[in-house]
Write a protein that binds this DNA or RNA. Structure first.
Lengths: 250, 250
DNA sequence: CCTTTTAAGGTCAACATGACCTTAAAATAG
DNA sequence: CTATTTTAAGGTCATGTTGACCTTAAAAGG
């Protein structure tokens, strides 16, 4: 542990990092971006992407920088639709064997991105279904299983009360695209008709483009953009919808 | 900025602190515990209570320790009903003039506590209505106005979807006691009859004690304890209830 | 032309909500 | 003792939301 003396007095200082739980929906399955660690500790194990906060940047900036390094995608603020929010901080004394590292975890949601680029330090990055990881939490390095569990729970709750589900869809998208996002994240099947009624009546959730998309089979689907609303009123609660059997992803 | 070299390599380290937004409802008003700073920077200004995270403690422990130092009340985990949860982290490079300090903010909710004890460093501590502080954000030191704003918003949302409002009430309490908590935190008047119907029908929110309390005037009120449920289903949304004029606290 | 598949929209009973009203149980004033 | 006041507790009813289920629409393919 270090001691900082410049103005604060004798105060123990710690390394501060950001870790990202970057989610997408691929093949009707919620997936998270993992990196394979190229150095100790946990060499060869998989972990959430992240890195140290630099001296002159704030926490959100560090998260956006790491996000871009891993996905090569610009994040919130522009119109790419990518969603980034702070999840919480994790600072147990023993969580990093190298020393005291407090990490600020972020939750990122994005559409089905191209296969991620290798990070700047040439670590291999790939998408993994979260369902497998939640069942085998020891797979992940550090306390990243805990962070992932909290991130999944946060994402599921966000879909109930906000319109961020649209961040998982590349625009323009259909109501069915959006429904498949909800089904993948919640892991349950939803009634297509009732779902359509909810999201189309919710003010500011969907904005019709007027275009249609002709699928491989079936009737053409009307296409939408994400509306301006952030909150979903009334909310779309999964507790009451959880009566149907879970969806079986391919 | 310090550089930590023990195992992590050359990584800038930072001081890590916890700050607490401790709320209670006094005189039908949402109030927050502030301390008057006894040293620079911001000498004589008011701030949220807080302190540095120690080398061998985790973040929750640091928050509980600071909470006890300021309020002399044991926090979560026991049956005092005090609620403590992490709010978020704030780490802008310029937020503390002494140097780089990342703070993990916590939200604490408690019943109308006895007048708080002076902190261990003899700082004066007192309750202040949040409404005044939100109107005059420059009153607070550091970025504590931002933290307070986020904490109030979090508390208001928590009352919609969870049963934490009971943490504001000393047990046993009446339905009207609980309603006055909602009215104070949300700043709006609620229909007493509809409120009673909601909270008494919500599974696990209230647990009848069988006792009554005879007020100074009016019919005796049945008394309750907090039930075992953490989530409030269905939620009690303020958006739809916000049709009545705001309550004017005394 | 008919079937299959997905999209889109309708029906209806059950439930939740907001507005409002009635009754209950205490203290107090007359 | 009776009437009034005050707060608690519970009921009514029109309206809106939800979940379950059904019907129709628009494409492709045999």
């Amino acid at each position: 542990m270090n001691v900082q003396r410049d103005g604060i007095g004798a105060v123990e200082t710690m390394a501060v990092a950001v870790d990202l739980a970057i989610f997408t929906v691929r093949d009707d399955t919620l997936q998270v971006l993992l990196i394979e660690r190229g150095k100790a500790p946990f060499l060869g194990r998989v972990a959430l992407p992240g890195g140290y906060v630099r001296a002159q940047e704030n926490l959100d900036h560090a998260a956006r920088r790491e996000l871009q390094e891993e996905t090569d995608i610009r994040s919130a603020g522009d119109k790419s639709g990518l969603h980034l929010e702070q999840l919480g901080s994790y600072g147990d004394p023993g969580r990093d064997p190298r020393g005291r590292v407090v990490t600020v975890a972020y939750l990122a949601l994005g559409p089905n991105l191209p296969t991620p680029v290798a990070g700047t330090d040439a670590r291999h990055a790939y998408w993994t279904p979260v369902q497998e990881l939640l069942a085998a939490p020891d797979t992940l390095a550090f306390d990243h299983a805990t962070i992932l569990r909290d991130a999944v729970e946060r994402a599921r709750t966000r879909l109930e009360y906000t319109t961020v589900a649209a961040a998982f869809c590349a625009e323009p998208f259909s109501v069915s695209d959006l429904r498949r996002v909800y089904e993948a994240v919640w892991g349950i099947a939803l009634d297509p008709s009732n779902f359509r009624r909810k999201v189309t009546r919710a003010e500011g959730f969907l904005e019709a483009t007027g275009e249609q998309r002709i699928p491989e089979v079936g009737r053409p689907a009307a296409l939408y953009r994400k509306g301006e609303a952030e909150l979903l009123i009334p909310p779309l609660l999964r507790s009451t919808n959880a009566t149907r059997p879970p969806v079986a992803p391919g």
